[in-house]
Design a protein around this nucleic acid. Structure first.
Lengths: 318, 318
DNA sequence: AATTTCTTGACGAGAGTTGGACACCAGCAG
DNA sequence: CTGCTGGTGTCCAACTCTCGTCAAGAAATT
């Protein structure tokens, strides 16, 4: 504990390895190939690193983490190393903030998620999706990870590249993550109410779940009525909840005449001041017919968000 | 930025690609087809770009992002490029909302939060902060709303513009929002462990809470030991949890000699391979002294995140 | 005695290089 | 509308270079 001892502290290779994050092998290789440090030796020949060695190695390790290669930086002085590191790190701190940095990260999450699906690793998939919602915003995570993921899975499933098991695993994980996201949304007590679901014969759920979550995050109270629901049930839910808006997901089957009948029935059963919006592939194909019933057809989620905000401008601009 | 110092650094293609956002393929293609730069070569024939090359390529990349095509701008001088880019970007700033729109939203949340503080409206403040975390990402919400808010409150409190009641209300709301954020973080079972808190005599908590939340969101398991904790207690917590990292928030009082003693005591009590990092105003003022104890001093949260990622690279790049 | 560290040498994954091919898009001519 | 052409980003194959890792046997440390 004397000051003399404190300055003379020497570290064995194990301590240096753990503090710098470099393996003992690497420490020896760097010393031999690039002479980055020349540690003292014990009587038996074992390396004893000084604090100065430790600092130099730490700086080198940080520079490596910043994308440098050891051969190029092994000769630099401490001061040069520090300059290099601060330049690299501030650069990196900035780049994660730009729009393109974010775009890049979103596609990175997407490919990881897709890999988890093909690996049939549900735990991994769920974790990737949760991390995406934490590191990107919820909105970006839905638009640029979850929706593209489902789309890609659908395409590959149709092409026979993946099995129904993969598709099912993806659905389950996405459903759970959406439920988790929605549970952490905060809805003010005086929020307007929206009914979300799919009408009769539409037997898919994820589209509606995504719409429900999106609606929640725009500060609406959501009454989620599930899928394949007859017009009467939707009308009852609307009346009881006092909803101003009904959002219907129409994906499959497309081109079913029954669907138009159902939509018309809903339109007739609820008060005319309730706005009904539809989205999804099946809605696109029947675009004109649906419009004649006085319903809106939405092409994508951002458009839906804009609609929501125009219906109920939140105190927070945009 | 003196030219004498800047000349030392040469950049491998990987760094240039990351900083400019251009792919290595593009860098080579531009060099071959348009001679936009002529990088030096290493002994092995690998490209080594100077700072000047880097700047030129960055400008070209921005011009490309602005809609220009490489063939038409490859001959332009740096000045001409700058003019072109500012013209393009001001043009675009008027028409659409991109990165600036996000920045704008963050500052919008911030001013709403500040208004809630001066109005002594805790419910509103909490809701604004929660919405900020939902609409921005958690990371951005912390960096650009919560931290600036606390800073502004501190400044106004010091200037006597607001009362202790305002300051207290802000602390309570922020603390609750942080707790909520942390509860919704997902930590994988095999995550490394970090101990977070403040040492003895440091009687503030929010800084440590923010660090704890940030650490959680980087997929670490956090042992939060609270504030004003003696060195022995921190050492025990470290040992029992098997932590690899101790993160200490040092804000107030600054310049207290006692603090350095405490830090030294912690350093001596825990195994040398445990990394200790410090941050906060008091850490900055004692920067050099702390560094001699083998501890890192962190300037801001982005730098802390980079450190965390270098210690435990998550499967998700960046 | 068990574990760690040392040295030397070699291996191989990954990154970088070159030359060339290819896909895509625009504009323009037939 | 179709086909051609030049401009560009991307990809591929084969090779080289870099650098982390491993193996094996000896020595030191605990």
């Amino acid at each position: 504990m004397s000051p003399a001892q404190a300055t003379a502290a020497l570290h064995p290779v194990r301590v240096v390895a753990q503090r710098t994050g470099l393996s003992p092998d690497v420490l020896r290789a760097w010393e031999k190939r690039y002479s980055v440090v020349q540690p003292l030796r014990s009587d038996g020949g074992q390396r004893l690193y000084t604090d100065a060695d430790l600092e130099r190695l730490s700086l080198l390790a940080r520079a490596i983490a910043g994308g440098r290669s050891i051969g190029q930086i092994s000769d630099l002085s401490l001061r040069e190393l520090e300059n290099l590191i601060t330049a690299d790190e501030t650069e990196r701190a900035n780049s994660s903030r730009t729009a393109q940095g974010r775009q890049l990260r979103a596609s990175c999450f997407l490919s990881l998620a897709m890999k988890a699906v093909t690996d049939l690793d549900m735990f991994e998939l769920e974790e990737v999706l949760r991390r995406a919602t934490m590191h990107l915003s919820t909105v970006v995570a839905i638009d640029e990870v979850i929706v593209p993921l489902l789309h890609e899975v659908g395409v590959k499933w149709a092409a026979g590249e993946i099995t129904p098991a993969h598709e099912h695993l993806g659905s389950v994980a996405v459903r759970r993550v959406l439920a988790w996201m929605q549970s952490s949304a905060v809805v003010p007590p005086n929020a307007p109410v929206a009914v979300v679901g799919t009408p009769a014969d539409q037997r898919h759920e994820l589209g509606a779940k995504i719409v429900a979550t999106t609606t929640s995050y725009e500060s609406w109270k959501v009454v989620y009525v599930g899928s394949d629901l007859p017009a009467e049930a939707i009308a009852v839910a609307t009346k009881q909840s006092g909803a101003r808006l009904i959002a219907l997901s129409l994906i499959y089957p497309t081109g079913c005449p029954h669907m138009l009948e159902q939509l018309k029935a809903i339109r007739d059963l609820v008060p005319p001041e309730v706005l009904i919006v539809t989205g999804g592939k099946a809605a696109q194909t029947q675009r004109d017919a649906i419009a004649t019933y006085g319903m809106r057809v939405i092409a994508n989620l951002p458009e839906y968000r804009i609609l929501l905000r125009s219906l109920h401008p939140s105190p927070i601009g945009l």
